[in-house]
Design a protein around this nucleic acid. Structure first.
Length: 398
RNA sequence: GGAGGGGUGGCCGAGCGGUCAAUGGCAGCAGACUGUAAAUCUGCCGACGGAAGUCUACGUAGGUUCAAAUCCUACCCCCUCCA
């Protein structure tokens, strides 16, 4: 009789907000929360080896069912001994269900669309009760993703935390459509639960996704649904509106009524301010491509004191003004990049399109995020979170 | 010496009478990036101007034409082949 190897403990609650310091137990180790989950979409955090992730004190990474299903296939990963062994990462892993990708296929515009920035061509995919038919981005072949297939693949890959298959409704959806999609997502999530229990290996914990778009009553309905389902944790998904205020209003509403005993994940959000606000609203984990993508595009995350506080929390190293900046990237950062390379050298690597630029900046941004989340955890432990938030807020927002 | 090909904006390279301040690419400059089709994408990129616009430009100097980077003549360079 084996014991379910997952547990979420709330170690401390912030007196001034809904923030909490927690610990998420998985078969591959604990995740101290609040935590950031790095995106390793195709079973690799682009540019970094697992040893480097580890050195940067990374706790947990994410991979994507959709991408891995198309290449190299869940069967192959199972043959390899599971995702952990396949990618050489011993720590906790999460796999996303592929629900999000289904809506960004063939276009690449849907990520924007979900954020309310652009309209998409609605003609690409077929959504039925059974699941979603979509075109592979690799070879154009038609693929079908259903709750059962997503869960089966996630079980084969064996990530610790897995996500129920949902429909991610875009921003420009009507209320009627969002509602219809929500109901269907709930049925898919129900099927996800059943599919997981059919595999019954007990080595994976399932997250249910809260949908409902920008409509408070639908979000409320979705919260009510996931709370009743036997999910281990909850994820907040779908469109979160077109502005930060709208996003936080939705997160606020949702987190205030989710089961407080379960960990809460905010899908796809990773801005520093967003994390601070999210944590204050009770979010335990975040994932986002931003830190790693930003790095590949020449941006280095920076403490507020080291970048132009009027704008972003990063410096764009490819800018000409860093060509002769021979000082360290961030003197306070212990990462190998900051310890060894000047801004001028990093600028050069980027301009010269050297591969090291990608690795060096990614390593820094990963380190930065881990330190940032560590700072939040420490602040929570010392009841200083409110102070930290205020400090960041006043430093960054003029 | 003979025959042929070519000289275009920082570079490479299209254009071969008007719609050409001149396609592309590179380099340069700036912006974007939030469940990753992203080492990507977008914009600017002769000078002056906020803009409309004005000026200077396609080896050099003339010429033909209402109009020339595009046609003609001479000259200067470069490349290939033959002697």
């Amino acid at each position: 009789m084996s014991v379910f190897p997952f547990r979420f403990d709330v170690l401390r609650k912030d007196p001034a907000s809904r923030a909490r310091r927690g610990r998420l137990h998985t078969p591959h180790g604990c995740v101290e929360t609040p935590a950031f989950i790095f995106c390793g979409t195709k079973a690799s955090v682009k540019g970094l080896a697992p040893s480097q992730l580890k050195a940067a004190r990374t706790q947990i990474c994410l991979a994507n069912t959709y991408h891995l299903l198309l290449q190299p296939g869940a069967n192959l990963i199972a043959e390899a001994g599971g995702l952990h062994r396949f990618m050489g990462w011993e720590g906790p892993l999460l796999t996303d269900s592929g629900g999000f990708q289904v809506f960004s296929l063939g276009h690449g515009s849907v990520a924007d669309e979900i954020k309310g920035k652009r309209c998409r061509d609605p003609s690409v995919q077929k959504i039925s009760e059974e699941g979603v038919t979509f075109q592979s981005y690799r070879d154009g072949s038609l693929q079908v993703l259903t709750p059962e297939r997503s869960i089966e693949a996630q079980c084969q890959m064996g990530a610790d935390l897995i996500v129920a298959f949902d429909e991610c409704t875009p921003y420009h959806s009507t209320r009627a459509y969002t509602e219809q999609a929500l109901e269907r997502s709930h049925r898919w999530e129900q099927r996800s639960v059943e599919a997981l229990s059919a595999h019954n290996m007990g080595q994976q914990a399932l997250y249910g996704v809260v949908q409902g778009g920008v409509y408070p009553d639908l979000r409320a309905e979705s919260v009510c649904f996931v709370n009743k389902m036997p999910f281990f944790g909850h994820a907040i998904g779908g469109t979160l509106g077109s502005t930060r205020e709208e996003m936080m209003a939705i997160v606020d509403q949702v987190t205030s009524s989710l089961d407080p005993g379960r960990p809460i994940h905010l899908l796809g959000i990773g801005g520093l301010h967003d994390i601070l606000q999210g944590v204050a609203l009770g979010v335990d984990t975040f994932d986002c491509v931003h830190p790693t993508r930003l790095a590949r595009h020449g941006g280095a995350l920076m403490p507020v004191t080291l970048c132009d506080p009027a704008e972003r929390a990063c410096i764009v190293l490819k800018r000409a003004c860093y060509a002769r900046d021979f000082g360290p990237l961030d003197p306070s950062c212990p990462c190998e990049t900051c310890q060894n390379f000047s801004r001028a050298y990093l600028h050069h690597l980027i301009k010269a399109r050297e591969i090291l630029a990608l690795t060096a900046l990614t390593l820094h941004n990963v380190t930065f995020m881990n330190r940032f989340l560590q700072e939040i955890r420490t602040a929570l432990e010392q009841d200083r979170f409110e102070e930290m938030r205020t400090h960041w807020h006043s430093s960054c927002v003029q």
